[in-house]
Design a protein around this nucleic acid. Structure first.
Lengths: 137, 137
DNA sequence: CTTGACCTTCCAGAGAGTGGAAGCCTTATC
DNA sequence: GATAAGGCTTCCACTCTCTGGAAGGTCAAG
């Protein structure tokens, strides 16, 4: 008799919350079989997949990327070029996001530093966001 | 007779898309009055607010932050400390996001560099996401 | 009068879950 | 055998900030 893994155990072992695991089944990402009582029954391979997805997600890959990566992982004959293509694309999007955030951080950081932060109404932060030529108190 | 501004003109002048302006009305962020024909009629002050919100959004402030900032902007007696508090909090969240993305970028960047990206199946990227002790082809 | 460019509302979907309610199933205890 | 706790099920709603589209009203020009 095979040890059956219910969702709770799988959540614990994979680090993926039970709610999220159900969601992954819903979107056909990782689909367990069903036990006679209607409970989800997870095979070892399902647990592996969930761990894989958990790690891919923590690297910021989208669900669709995860789906593709999972398929490549399962395919013993994959060319590593396909994996690298997905990862490179993702990497450049991360870089773009970092650049955007960095620009925001620069601007906002300067404004915060310039703001007295006292009881007076004068505020460079608000001034920066005010439409040009709309002097406020 | 006052020049009436329809949503299209306002979108053009404020840089905020018409769809988004309607959404902002829906959530009571910027609420124009209505003309007799049912069209939204924007006052100068509405346009100013939309520009303000547009800039705040481009600095990454949430809608709720924008709502608060807008109220402070309108309040001639605001203490700049309140503005600064919101901005500082936002700034530290930006910093946190940058840190997270940076960590991802480091890990993923190293993996992408390590991956040959050819027709062979061996792939350090997949290996990094594979559960421990699950050797793949 | 028709055409085209506006404007209106409402509905649905994006991404990736999360929370909660109502109701089975299982296991342990009495 | 009864009962209570905890785990499991489904389904619906909500998050956040829009964005796209359909169906239809309004307006200005030719």
């Amino acid at each position: 008799m095979v040890e059956v893994l219910n969702i709770g155990k799988v959540a614990e072992r994979s680090g993926v919350p039970a709610k999220t695991i159900r969601y992954y089944e819903d979107i056909d990402l990782v689909v367990p079989i069903r036990a006679a009582n209607g409970y989800r029954a997870f095979r070892e391979s399902d647990v592996q997949k969930l761990i894989f997805v958990g790690r891919a997600r923590s690297l910021g890959f989208s669900i669709e990327d995860c789906r593709a990566l999972l398929a490549l992982w399962e395919d013993d004959a994959r060319p590593s070029a396909e994996v690298k293509a997905i990862a490179s694309e993702h990497l450049s999007q991360i870089d773009a996001r970092i650049r955007d955030l960095h620009a925001m951080r620069e601007t906002l950081g300067a404004l915060v530093e310039a703001c007295a932060g006292d009881e007076r109404p004068d505020c460079p932060i608000l001034k920066a966001m005010a439409p040009d030529g709309v002097p406020e108190a």
